[in-house]
């Protein structure tokens, strides 16, 4: 996973709420056995409009996406995070996310920044003409004007993003603890193993 610290550039002033993962990547793009090339299907129904934001001269390849409440709701498909990553997006800024999407984003080196709607409204305005600056180490979103918005992030997620960590390798260090749990489970509740 590519480490992420500072991201600056144009931010797509998308702003819609309840954007579901079927909109981010429709199901027919899921018929693949690899993670690559999903960007072509990203926001397909919206990009059918030739005047869409994503393909406009200003925002094509922009590293930041600004959205409304409950971004990434619906299907658990990680393909949504792969599609955003393939479009070049490293940061999403929204008031809230679906729990599954925000987890998938972090595992793919995409930072889901949570800011209140008032901050989103201001950033939407700035983003139409100017770049946005995101600093994960200091947990801030700033603009070239006086704007400075601080955001919260779980320390574990922050570390994973900053260091580009592979979570499985990390968990494998707990191998003995997992083994001990399994042994205790077999002793206390042996019926938990599937009977057949």
């Amino acid at each position: 996973m590519t480490p992420l610290d500072k991201v600056e550039g144009r931010a797509i002033p998308f702003g819609l709420k309840n954007v579901d993962t079927d909109v981010i990547i429709p199901a027919h793009w899921l018929k693949t056995t690899t993670r690559e090339g999903m960007g072509r299907g990203a926001f397909e129904s919206l990009r059918a409009d030739p005047d869409n934001l994503f393909d406009s001269a200003d925002f094509k390849g922009a590293p930041i996406l600004i959205a409304g409440d409950n971004f990434g709701c619906g299907s658990s498909r990680e393909h949504a995070a792969w599609a955003l990553g393939d479009l070049g997006i490293r940061v999403v800024i929204a008031p809230s996310y679906s729990d599954i999407f925000s987890g998938n984003a972090v595992k793919n080196g995409i930072l889901p920044v949570v800011l209140p709607q008032s901050a989103i409204d201001r950033l939407m305005e700035v983003a139409t003409t100017d770049p946005v600056f995101v600093d994960l180490e200091h947990q801030t979103v700033t603009t070239q004007y006086q704007d400075r918005f601080s955001f919260e992030i779980d320390p574990f997620r922050k570390m994973c993003l900053l260091e580009g960590l592979d979570e499985i390798s990390l968990t494998e260090k707990s191998d003995a603890a997992i083994g001990a749990y399994e042994a205790k489970l077999d002793a206390d509740r042996p019926w938990m193993r599937p009977a057949a």
Partner: peptide
């Protein structure tokens, strides 16, 4: 699959996960 929530109907804590988590569970069962 996000509709894993379904199995909560019998009193299981059941939830959907992404593909990275599928790999994590396959490898570590956690």
């Amino acid at each position: 699959d996000s509709h894993t929530a379904c199995h909560g109907g019998i009193g299981a804590l059941a939830f959907g996960i992404g593909t990275s988590e599928v790999e994590h569970v396959l490898a570590t069962q956690t």
